[in-house]
């Protein structure tokens, strides 16, 4: 039971992270389209931001690990 609830929690965390990473990716592509010469800089910032958002999602995963065994 705890496991399933934890899984639901992980899923919710993934929704948030998905929206976040989607926003980051979309804005980055917009930015690159607007300023193709800054593509490498935007890519760098994008990856860092994506990693940070992903980190937040992984906190959710870790909390769901807490429910395991």
């Amino acid at each position: 039971m705890i496991g399933s609830i934890a899984a639901l929690g992980a899923g919710l965390a993934v929704i948030g992270a998905g929206i976040g990473i989607g926003q980051i990716g979309g804005k980055a592509v917009e930015g690159i389209a607007r300023q193709p010469e800054a593509a490498s800089k935007i890519q760098g910032a994008m990856i860092i931001a994506a990693a940070l958002v992903e980190g937040a999602a992984l906190f959710g995963v870790v909390v769901s690990f807490l429910g395991l065994r």
Binding site: A51, E54, G55, L58, F59, V61, V62, F65
Partner: peptide, 13 residues
């Protein structure tokens, strides 16, 4: 702490 969790959770996942 976020660093710790990020690496751990990424690889484990």
């Amino acid at each position: 702490f976020a660093l710790m969790i990020r690496l751990f959770a990424n690889i484990t996942a």
